[in-house]
Write a protein that binds this DNA or RNA. Structure first.
Lengths: 197, 197
DNA sequence: AACAACTCCGTAGTATTTCCGTAGTTAAAA
DNA sequence: TTTTAACTACGGAAATACTACGGAGTTGTT
């Protein structure tokens, strides 16, 4: 069942109101916003939207409207531990969760790691920052990845060359790590960063 | 079950009180805060909120109220525009919203700005990053602030000296801005950073 | 043209919310 | 134990908010 333009406007108004105020508008507020002379008009829209499943109406309760599609703007992902700490990711059991804005997340599995050390400082990634990682085992040149080498987890820029893989730190005092294909396992791709002061 | 405006105000008051003091307010404190002439009014609210599952009431115990914290892990704050773009913040009307993890936010009003330029690159703040700002007009030395100078909004490190205010960029190719007290207006303090790759 | 769906109005009726006051119970303090 | 502070339990009254329902104009479809 499709919505008409006006019906969508009403639904949007309610949704927006709820998002801003945390509670639904009264029918009278809807009436005033759209300039209706009668509450009946509002009732009709509520009836349509409710029947169509776009709106939930807790009958007889004041401010009892609720948009059925509560848009999720954030998502909880596991904070698996610290990176560049020499601990394989899987080893960490006590997983906290952290909420991140969904616009950071695409498809697939995501997790977070707290950055340890200064190795990516020239990319604006500081000690203590939280890195949001998308789980994947492949990467393109130049991307920042989570990689495991010799049982150590590390965050570096990835470059695949003809005979070797290079993991570049973004810190001029440090040198790239160069390994054979087999010795480097990619665990994920950096997709976001969260810092708190 | 939905909350009315007043019910939400009462719940918010209790929640805020608990967050500040660590213990719940007495019913009398609630009564005074809202100016009720009768404790019965407070009781009614407690009854509604408890029935709706918004509040836990350890019956017959003093200060026994507890918000059934539907823990908000994120909050929506307005994304007011770009910083260091020469546009006074207030001028921007079309305010988007962005959700940020609540652990970034303390008390007070917050908003977000998209960082433009490289002036804070050595602090790990890159072009395009979203800066989460707490609104305030004072700052301590060394803090990163949003300041307005000559109608330009900018993000810099703040240092107050005896006769002048210095705003330091974190970029060795740029020089500090030095102005008299009156010419610099602080608009907020950097409390968080969000980056998407 | 006939029909259905949508939009809007107005009135009357019902339910809920809000607030008050008084009396009683429980828990902590003196 | 006595006292005091804090919480609980009604009942009632006014204000506010919601529901029901009938009707009328408009638009689009068959």
């Amino acid at each position: 069942m499709a919505l008409t333009k006006k019906q969508k406007e009403v639904l949007d108004f309610i949704t927006e109101y709820v998002r801003e105020h945390g509670i639904s508008p009264t029918q009278k507020e809807i009436q005033n916003h759209f300039g209706f002379k009668s509450l009946g008009s509002v009732q009709d829209y509520i009836k349509y939207l409710t029947n169509g499943g776009y709106l939930l109406n807790d009958s007889h309760s004041v401010r009892g409207l609720m948009p059925a599609t509560v848009q999720q703007h954030t998502e909880e992902i596991p904070l698996l531990g610290e990176i560049a700490a020499g601990i394989p990711i899987e080893a960490i059991e006590n997983s906290d969760f952290i909420s991140v804005p969904t616009h950071m997340l695409g498809k697939g599995q995501h997790y977070a790691l707290r950055v340890k050390g200064e190795s990516m400082i020239e990319e604006g990634i500081l000690n203590g920052d939280i890195a949001v990682i998308k789980h994947q085992t492949q990467a393109n040149n130049g991307q920042i990845v989570v990689a495991v080498i010799d049982n150590e987890t590390t965050l570096k820029k990835y470059f695949k060359k003809a005979r070797q893989i290079e993991l570049h730190p973004a810190n001029s005092t440090m040198t790239p790590i160069i390994v054979k294909d087999k010795e480097c396992e990619i665990r994920g791709l950096l997709v976001g960063l969260i810092r708190t002061y």
